[in-house]
Amino acid sequence: MRKRIVFFMLALLFASVSRGLAQDAGPIKGQGVLDAVVAAQGKVVVVDFFASWCRPCLMEIPDFIEARRHYPPDKVVFIGVSLDQDQGEYFRFVKQTPFNFPVHLADPDVMSTFGVKMIPKTLIYDGKGQQAVNHAGYMPGDMLRQAIDTLLKDIGS
């Protein structure tokens, strides 16, 4: 019986992962983002702050999705944080965009916690959880990959 339960739980986990992480991952506070960075110790963590109405954000999201495909999840973690104020717009955007990483709707404290004054904004943390990149504005895919590659070399990956 216990083996069946474990098997069932693993099957549910696999099914949720195989569907992708494009589904809304729920609201997140600033501390929740910081907790996710700490939990990913030993991995590079990319945090992308965006909004569905932001044109530069819409330009860079496909590059982030492609980078997520390129890097193994045991080496690099991606977290999307939407600063949309209209929940309906947020949900529509997340549903129609093929995100392959968790995307959260930001609680109001997120902007002040991370000093977000403009979007898009990308923060990249090294394997020790230290902020290594703080980039405001559009980040082209090649710049994103170069930053990740540099940090992966630093942690010996």
Rank of each mutant, 00 (worst) to 15 (best):
V46T: 07
V46S: 08
V47F: 02
V47L: 00
F49D: 10
F49S: 09
F49Q: 05
F50R: 14
F50P: 15
A51C: 13
S52W: 07
S52E: 09
S52M: 06
W53C: 02
R55P: 10
P56N: 06
P56A: 08
P56H: 09
L58F: 07
M59Q: 09
M59T: 06
M59W: 09
E60M: 10
E60S: 10
E60I: 03
I61A: 05
I61V: 07
P62A: 12
D63Y: 09
D63Q: 06
F64Q: 05
F64N: 06
I65Y: 06
I65K: 01
I65M: 04
I65W: 05
I65C: 08
E66Q: 14
E66S: 14
A67R: 04
A67I: 00
A67K: 03
R68F: 10
R68A: 15
R69C: 07
H70D: 04
Y71G: 07
P72R: 01
P72D: 01
D74S: 15
K75I: 02
K75H: 12
K75F: 09
K75S: 11
V76Y: 05
V77W: 03
F78R: 02
F78C: 01
I79R: 04
I79T: 00
G80H: 03
V81D: 09
V81G: 14
V81S: 15
V81H: 13
L83Y: 09
L83I: 02
D84A: 11
Q85H: 11
Q85G: 11
Q85Y: 11
D86K: 02
Q87N: 15
Q87I: 13
E89P: 13
Y90Q: 14
F91V: 00
F91Y: 00
R92K: 11
R92I: 01
R92C: 08
F93R: 02
F93G: 04
V94H: 01
V94F: 02
K95A: 03
K95D: 03
K95N: 01
K95S: 00
K95P: 00
K95G: 02
K95E: 03
Q96L: 08
P98S: 13
F99D: 01
F99Y: 11
F99R: 08
F99Q: 00
F99T: 09
N100Q: 10
N100G: 12
F101Q: 03
F101W: 01
F101N: 02
F101G: 05
V103K: 00
V103M: 04
L105T: 03
A106G: 10
D107E: 15
D107G: 13
P108I: 04
D109M: 06
V110T: 04
M111C: 13
S112W: 14
T113W: 11
T113K: 12
F114I: 00
F114L: 10
G115P: 06
G115N: 12
G115I: 03
V116H: 12
V116P: 15
V116A: 13
K117V: 13
K117T: 15
M118I: 03
P120H: 12
P120V: 07
T122M: 08
T122K: 06
I124L: 12
D126M: 11
D126P: 13
G127W: 15
G127C: 13
K128F: 06
K128S: 11
